[in-house]
């Protein structure tokens, strides 16, 4: 039977319609509207050329600060989560008692809502009687008990730390699966040759995990650029604009009715992410291989 009749194309339409109208269309419209003076007050739209782009990248406003923060967040959390996730994965594939319990606990924060995690850490990081400062004072480390979320110098670091706390178990879980798929023959051969633990890690585990680490890195970068929930719940961009990221800014612009700037910021990010993502997706799709 003919493939087109056996596998009717209309099967795709439902998914395609919703995805096209509610996901792709707004992104395309957004690029077009970035060149207008669209706002809650505008009755008709006017073409303004590159004015919004100039606004977004001008040093007179805080937008570049938010963009830089987003990039910093992405780079730092991706790096630290990968390193910690790798360390945890190595630990959690060793002879640990109650291994499944520990793995489950380390992954647990990933299934919680980022909004809830943010609320929990608003309490934990409370400068006066939060759990963290209480513990630090009890250990005699009073000088380390800082104003984690209200001191503009360290607030963004605290936000990144909370995100790392929440997300490292995710990387760990993926990497555990990666480590388990490495054939034990390699390690046996290394042991016969007298290799120590570090050499095994450096010359077997790490190279074999590189493809997996590439994927976790890409997923984390995509997540980091889109971050909103954690920041919104912890600081909502404050104190001042210290922890502002791209999507908290978009939300603020949206609430203020300044739609043109909001959509310009979104579009800049969309163009950046889709062009970077394109290569990764092509790679992912190709890996699948053809059944025929």
């Amino acid at each position: 039977m003919n493939k087109n009749r056996m596998y009717p194309t209309w099967f795709v339409f439902g998914a395609l319609l919703l995805y096209g109208v509610l996901y792709v269309l707004p992104s395309l419209m957004g690029i077009g509207l970035s060149f207008t003076d669209w706002s809650i007050y505008s009755e008709e739209l006017h073409f303004v050329g590159l004015k919004n782009i100039q606004t977004v990248f001008s040093s007179d406003y805080n937008y570049t600060h938010a963009l830089l923060n987003t990039l910093k967040f992405t780079v730092v959390t991706t790096l630290v989560k990968n390193v910690l996730g790798l360390a945890l994965a190595v630990l959690m594939t060793k002879q640990v008692k109650l291994l499944n319990f520990h793995r489950a606990v380390l992954y647990l924060p990933c299934v919680l809502s980022a909004l809830i995690v943010g609320m929990i850490f608003k309490s934990v990081l409370n400068p006066r009687d939060g759990l963290l400062n209480r513990t630090l004072r009890a250990l005699g480390l009073d000088f380390m008990a800082l104003r984690w979320l209200t001191d503009s110098k360290i607030a963004f670091n605290s936000v990144m730390a909370v995100d790392i706390w929440k997300g490292m178990g995710y990387i760990m879980t993926i990497l555990i699966a990666g480590i388990m798929s490495i054939s034990p023959v390699y390690y046996e051969a290394a042991r016969i040759d007298g290799g120590n633990a570090w050499q095994c890690f450096r010359h077997i585990t790490l190279p074999m995990l590189t493809p997996t680490l590439t994927v976790t890195t890409v997923l984390n970068v995509l997540y980091g650029l889109k971050v909103f929930d954690t920041v919104y719940a912890l600081t909502n961009g404050g104190p001042g604009h210290a922890t502002e990221v791209l999507y908290t800014t978009v939300f603020r612009e949206f609430s203020l009715g300044r739609y043109a700037v909001g959509t310009t910021l979104s579009s800049v990010m969309a163009v950046l992410m889709v062009s970077a993502g394109y290569f990764m997706i092509r790679h992912m799709v190709r890996e699948e291989g053809d059944p025929a």
């Binding site: 792709v24 995509l222 949206f254 979104s266 992410m273 889709v274 993502g277």
Partner: peptide, 10 residues
Amino acid sequence: GIAMPVNFVT
């Protein structure tokens, strides 16, 4: 779409 962010405004 895995890589595409949502444009909430539009």
